[in-house]
Amino acid sequence: MDSTVTTGAEENVWGGGNRPLGASYGKLMMWFFLVSDALTFSGFLAAYGFSRFKFIETWPIADEVFTHVPFFHGNYPMYYVAFMTFILIMSSVTMVLAVDAGHRMKQNGVIWYLFLTIIGGAIFVGSQAWEWATFIKGDYGALETKGGRILQFVKADTGERAALAEFSKTIPSERLKHDKNEGVWFYDEGYQPSYSLNEVMEGFKANSNILIRTETINPDGEKELLSRQESLVKIQSADQVVEGANLIHNEYGSRLFADFFFFITGFHGFHVFSGVMINLIIFFNVVLGTYEKRGHYEMVEKVGLYWHFVDLVWVFVFTFFYLV
C-alpha cells in the first residue's frame, strides 16, 4: 500500500499534504465526469434491458435488422457494425499512441496520431449516420395491427422475405388532397406509404405464395411463420402500412426497439461527435505548440481519457444491441 506511506506531519495523507490519489486536479475531474457519464449510459442500457425482458418473446432479432453494408447488395448481418467497432478501437489505439508521444515530448508524433484519431472518429460518426439512414428508410415494409404489432411477409417457396412492392396490387383510387389555399389552418399531410393498406391486402389475397411472419420468436430462435390459412385470418387485424422505422412506427418489430436504438446510439454518436470536436481543438493547440510551451502534454491525456471512454461505451452498446 504505497499510498499510506507517511514521511512527516505535512505529508500525512489525511492532512492533504501529499497527493493520495497521485493524479492531477484536471485528470481527477475528468474521471469524475466519466464515472457519472458511465452511470447515465448504464441507466439507458438497463432501461433497454427492462423493455426487452418485458417483450422477450417478441423482440426483433438484430441480425435481421442490420443486414446492409454500403456499396454492397445482399444480406451481410453484423459485418458493418464489426467494422465500425474496429475503427473505433483503432482510433483509441492512435489516441494512446498520441498520449505516449506526449509523455516523451514528441510534438510531431502527437500531431500525427491525433490527426489519425480524428479521422477514425469522423469515419465512425459517418458510418453511424449511414446506419441510421438505412434503418429509417427500411427494407421490406410491413403491416401494423390494431394492437401496434408488426406483420412481415415471407415467400412460401424460398423462405425469403417479401417486399411490399413485390406483391401489392396497384388499385387506382381518388384521394382528396388539401392545399394551402383551401384553409385557414393548414397542416402538411406528411409522409404517405408507397402502397395503401387496401392495395397490400388485395395483393396478399391474390398471391398464394405469400405468408405472414409475426413478431413471436419460436423455441428455435426464429420468428414464427404462419400457414396460409392462419395468414389470411391474421391479415384482417392489420391497421396500417409501415415502411422503415421512426419513434412511433417500426417495420422491424417492437417500436421500443427503434426508440432505444435512436436514443442510445444517438446519445453515443453525440459523444463521438463532441469527442471529435474536442480532439480538433486540442489538435490545433498541439500544432500551435501550446503544450510544448506549457512543458507537458497532460491535456492530450485528459481528452484521451474521454475518447477511450466513448470507445468503452460502444463496446457495451455493440454487445447489447447487436450481439445478445
Partner: peptide, 9 residues
C-alpha cells in the same frame, strides 16, 4: 430492472 421486466412479462 431485469427482475421487474421479467415480472411484467
Amino acid at each position: 430492472l431485469l427482475v421487474e421486466g421479467n415480472y411484467i412479462y
